[in-house]
Amino acid sequence: MRLFALTLTAICFAASVVVAQNVPELTGPANDPMASMPAEALEQYVADDKRLMRAYPEQPPIIPHSIEGYQLSVNANRCLTCHKREHSLGSGAPMISVTHYMTRDGQMLADVSPRRYFCTQCHVPQADTAPLIDNTFTDMSEMGAKGAGSE
Results as ranks from 00 to 15, higher is better:
residue 1 M to H: 06
residue 5 A to H: 08
residue 6 L to K: 03
residue 10 A to F: 04
residue 14 A to Q: 01
residue 15 A to F: 11
residue 16 S to T: 13
residue 16 S to A: 09
residue 16 S to V: 01
residue 17 V to A: 12
residue 20 A to N: 05
residue 22 N to I: 03
residue 27 T to K: 15
residue 27 T to P: 00
residue 29 P to G: 01
residue 30 A to P: 05
residue 31 N to A: 07
residue 32 D to V: 00
residue 34 M to T: 14
residue 34 M to R: 13
residue 35 A to R: 10
residue 38 P to C: 04
residue 38 P to L: 11
residue 40 E to F: 12
residue 44 Q to L: 13
residue 47 A to K: 04
residue 47 A to T: 12
residue 52 L to E: 08
residue 53 M to Q: 08
residue 54 R to D: 09
residue 56 Y to S: 11
residue 58 E to R: 12
residue 58 E to F: 14
residue 59 Q to D: 10
residue 61 P to A: 07
residue 69 G to S: 09
residue 73 S to D: 11
residue 75 N to S: 11
residue 78 R to V: 06
residue 80 L to C: 01
residue 82 C to I: 05
residue 83 H to G: 01
residue 84 K to E: 10
residue 85 R to K: 10
residue 86 E to V: 06
residue 89 L to E: 15
residue 94 P to S: 07
residue 94 P to F: 05
residue 98 V to E: 15
residue 101 Y to P: 00
residue 110 A to H: 10
residue 110 A to F: 12
residue 111 D to Q: 13
residue 132 L to A: 12
residue 132 L to V: 06
residue 136 T to I: 12
residue 139 D to S: 12
residue 140 M to K: 13
residue 141 S to Q: 08
residue 144 G to M: 03
residue 145 A to L: 15
residue 147 G to M: 10
residue 150 S to G: 06
residue 151 E to M: 04
